[in-house]
C-alpha cells in the first residue's frame, strides 16, 4: 500500500518546528509502523536528506523508549499497544498519518519526534524506591504477600514510563505515572515504612517539573499502552491526603 506521512521536523530544542510530508510506497501489512519509518528514512538518506529521528529500542513494547502521536492518538489507534508494536495492517492504502512528538511543557523536544523525559526520572528520585541497601535483607519468603495485593501491585508496576499519559492529557498531568509507582509500593508490605513521605515527595516533584493536575478525563487510561488503571490515580490521591495529615 501507499502511505503519506506528515511528520514533525525540528532540528533541536530551540529550533522552530514544521510539518513535512512524505509519501511511502510498497508498504506491506506485516511491517511494523517503525519498519515503515525505517524504509522512509533509508529512502531519505539516499536522497541526501535528513532522516526523521524517533526514539525506540526494544521494539517489543516493554522498554518505554518509543512514543509518538499518530493522527492525534498517543501510540496510534490501537489500545494497549505501543508505537513500536503497531503494525501497518492497522492502516489502509492511501492513509495519511500525521506523526508528532509528545506535546507537553515538561517534555521538551530534542529532535523531530524525540523528547526529553528526564522529568520522570527526577520524580522517581524524589521517592520511587524502598530504602534498602544491598545485603542484610531477610529471606524472601519471610514476607508473605496476598496474591490479590501482589497482583494489583504488579498491575501498577507494569508501567513502562513512556509518557503517553502525559501526552494524552489536556493538562499534561503525570498522575497516572506517579499513581502507578506509589500504588505498587503502597500495596506491598515493603513499601509501608516510607509510604507517606514517598507520596508527598513524588507529588511535590511532579508539580515542580511543571506537569499539570488531574481533572478526571481518563484520557490517560485510554491511551496507556500498559492499560494502567485510573484507580491508581484515586489511590495516589488517597495516599497523598493520608500523608498530609
Amino acid at each position: 500500500m501507499k502511505i503519506t506521512v506528515q511528520a514533525w521536523r525540528q532540528n533541536h530544542r530551540n529550533a522552530e518546528g514544521r510539518f513535512e510530508s512524505y509519501s511511502v510506497d510498497n508498504v506491506s501489512e506485516d511491517m511494523s509502523f517503525f519498519e515503515m519509518l525505517d524504509m522512509l528514512n533509508n529512502q531519505l538518506i539516499l536522497e541526501g536528506k535528513d532522516p526523521i529521528s524517533f526514539d525506540h529500542d526494544c521494539r517489543e513494547g516493554i522498554c518505554g523508549t518509543c512514543g509518538v502521536m499518530i493522527n492525534g492518538r498517543a501510540h496510534g489507534p490501537l489500545s494497549g499497544t505501543t508505537s513500536c508494536q503497531l503494525h501497518m495492517r492497522s492502516f489502509k492504502d492511501g492513509d495519511v498519518l500525521i506523526v508528532e512528538p509528545w506535546r507537553a511543557a515538561a517534555f521538551p523536544v530534542i529532535r523531530d519526534l524525540v523528547v526529553d523525559r528526564k522529568g520522570f526520572d527526577r520524580i522517581m528520585e524524589a521517592g520511587g524506591y524502598v530504602s534498602v541497601s544491598t545485603g542484610g535483607v531477610p529471606d524472601a519468603n519471610t514476607l508473605p504477600v496476598s496474591k490479590k495485593n501482589a497482583d494489583l501491585s504488579f498491575d501498577a508496576a507494569a508501567c513502562i514510563g513512556c509518557g503517553a499519559c502525559v501526552a494524552a492529557c489536556k493538562n499534561s498531568s503525570a498522575m497516572l505515572f506517579v499513581g502507578a509507582k506509589v500504588s505498587q509500593y503502597a500495596l506491598l508490605p515493603q513499601g509501608q515504612v516510607e509510604r507517606a513521605s514517598r507520596a508527598k515527595n513524588m507529588v511535590k516533584q511532579m508539580d515542580t517539573e511543571g506537569f499539570g493536575n488531574c481533572t478526571n478525563t481518563s484520557a490517560c487510561e485510554v491511551e496507556c499502552p500498559k492499560e494502567i488503571s485510573i484507580v491508581n490515580i484515586a489511590r495516589l490521591n488517597r495516599e497523598f491526603v493520608r500523608a498530609s495529615f
Partner: peptide, 18 residues
C-alpha cells in the same frame, strides 16, 4: 532476597509465598 526487599513484585502463590 534483595529484589523482594526492594518491592519487586514476583509471582506468588495463594498462600502469599513465592
Amino acid at each position: 532476597d534483595q529484589c523482594v526487599a526492594q518491592g519487586v513484585p514476583f509471582a506468588r502463590e495463594y498462600g502469599g509465598l513465592l
